[in-house]
Design a protein around this nucleic acid. Sequence first.
DNA 1: CATGAATGAGTATTCATTCAT
DNA 2: GATGAATGAATACTCATTCAT
Lengths: 194, 194, 194, 194
Amino acid sequence: MPQNDTERALRSDARRNRDHILDVAERHFIEHGVTGSLNEIAKGAGVGPGTLYRHFPSRDDLLAALLTARDEKIGAQRAAITSTVSNPGEALAQWLAALVDWAGAFDGLPEPLRAAISETNSPLSSTCEGYITSTDEFLSQAKREGVARRDVRARDLFLLALAVSWARGAAMADDASAHAMSDVLRHGWTPAAQ
Amino acid sequence: MPQNDTERALRSDARRNRDHILDVAERHFIEHGVTGSLNEIAKGAGVGPGTLYRHFPSRDDLLAALLTARDEKIGAQRAAITSTVSNPGEALAQWLAALVDWAGAFDGLPEPLRAAISETNSPLSSTCEGYITSTDEFLSQAKREGVARRDVRARDLFLLALAVSWARGAAMADDASAHAMSDVLRHGWTPAAQ
Amino acid sequence: MPQNDTERALRSDARRNRDHILDVAERHFIEHGVTGSLNEIAKGAGVGPGTLYRHFPSRDDLLAALLTARDEKIGAQRAAITSTVSNPGEALAQWLAALVDWAGAFDGLPEPLRAAISETNSPLSSTCEGYITSTDEFLSQAKREGVARRDVRARDLFLLALAVSWARGAAMADDASAHAMSDVLRHGWTPAAQ
Amino acid sequence: MPQNDTERALRSDARRNRDHILDVAERHFIEHGVTGSLNEIAKGAGVGPGTLYRHFPSRDDLLAALLTARDEKIGAQRAAITSTVSNPGEALAQWLAALVDWAGAFDGLPEPLRAAISETNSPLSSTCEGYITSTDEFLSQAKREGVARRDVRARDLFLLALAVSWARGAAMADDASAHAMSDVLRHGWTPAAQ
DNA sequence: CATGAATGAGTATTCATTCAT
DNA sequence: GATGAATGAATACTCATTCAT
């Protein structure tokens, strides 16, 4: 029986399907936020909901895959910061700004990310842990140089970056606010020279 | 003594109903978060959905009423801070902490509050505006005394308080994080003595 | 006891209330069609739904009262036709046109009118019967003069007038159609000279 | 023989479901009119509301499907008229009578049909358009033979057929009226020999 | 592996009507 | 006689998830 052929075809089809689903899902999440209908995504990708479900058993799996695809981008940012920014304080600041942007990729993305921090079962957990680790590297370096407070923890900074991203999420359209909040994150609302 | 009760009821059995609905809604929101079923609340209060709808045309109306009922509490806090805390920086810090607690009354509450900031039509809008004004009073005083940065705006601080409250949400149960985030909000992650 | 005074006041209030309700209901029906919410009308008139219900136990009672108020207008039309149009065929045609307009006063009005013809219990029944009688007068005269077919009945003509009004009801915006249908009603779709 | 049945089911259990829904819907609409509850139909068919919704996204879709199933019947009537009635006037008359019957299949059916004429988006629109076209064919032929007035339009005749069907509705149960109205439609209320 | 039909609980919302005040 | 609070059945519609084909 020529199943060999069939199986190969299926595998390549599956791969193509998976990638296509991701493309469609990304567009859908950008347009409708992360709570958009999964069935709608399946329909948009030309597959049945069962196929979507097979590839991504939950919404978080889909999100995790989408974020993994973006790993490269923020990874490049991290490398660029590491290699070009000598001031560790500035480096941490830029990294946190990158995180805020990253979590703002889709409307409502901060929510499942926050949830994933507390639930080790979520497919987004490892994603978050990875970025918490990165944050810790920048933070540790900053602490060593004395430009970050010793009592600040990487996990909290990551969570705050999500929070700032969440706060931005509103139909704010106010760039000033966005910057101001990141600024408060860095310096607090107390004056630098006090 | 019983007549007193009766007279109140005579004036309006609706009053009793309304209060009862609010009680039930409060319990429901505490247990199931602000997205809990309104019909369930009506059922729990022993009234038809129409009655709930008559008193509170939208979920936000219900939330606004619930928060108004708590006005007294946070108002008292504000008064206490004003009268007992002489340091304006500390006063602002305590006020923001009170706000974070306030927005954490129900799971998911920060979300509609954030939305209400951008929509002038929401019944929660005036609630938010009131607290933004209070924040501005504390902030202005702090600026006058030079213990708050001049480029920080009350609206952004309020939004950040919501964001911290949001970040606290879920099964965080980590008090250290909660305090740490409020602390970062005040001082940033940079050392005080720089 | 000064109930005499009170009763007089109530009566005059009631009268004013009734008239005011009718005014508001007319506006409401014109804007929202005859299926518009009765409670909304009560609210608009500044009375409780119970008051509306007391004056007009059913929607049809309200419609009947509204149509009675218009009796004068169509009555005047009838008188004018009778006194100025000598040709009985033309008179019947004009009367039917007046009926079509009358039944088109509110969106959806033909529906309860049609129902009222078959139900003797409806408050609209007597209204309809009255106009059927008027139609019969015009029709009989036309028959006597040989300008109306003997096998046509007044009730059917009235019903057809309602039907034409119903057909117009759609967002037609097509005056030609409106006239054409009335014309078919008079002459049929067969040529006059055949 | 049972396999035949099974194979059909294999090809699509949905087919059986769809047909069953249509059967139930037809009975329901006949008994309760076209405004009957869709959920009730779903329940009656033993399917969830989602299944009904999947097959027929809107009430009009369901009606359109039901009418399509009757296409055959009225199509046969049209063919019979065309082939057996040589007099084009009589042919048009019979076709219009067939339309009146068709639109009277369910209580309240004329209403959505009328609405569909003005809305190009309705699933019933194409159905209506088709029958307007058929009407035009009969009408044009009649005009060519001089037995229909040249200023009568097919769309208006179709609408009038709906109107007559509408007028027949409710508990009329008066066959004489029904015939009379169709007759007026053809000849008007003026005598043939004038 | 893919399909997509089916599920069916769940939610918000409306409104004529009643009746205690 | 007036009020208006309460009723509560009823309806349309959604969507994650399953599973027979």
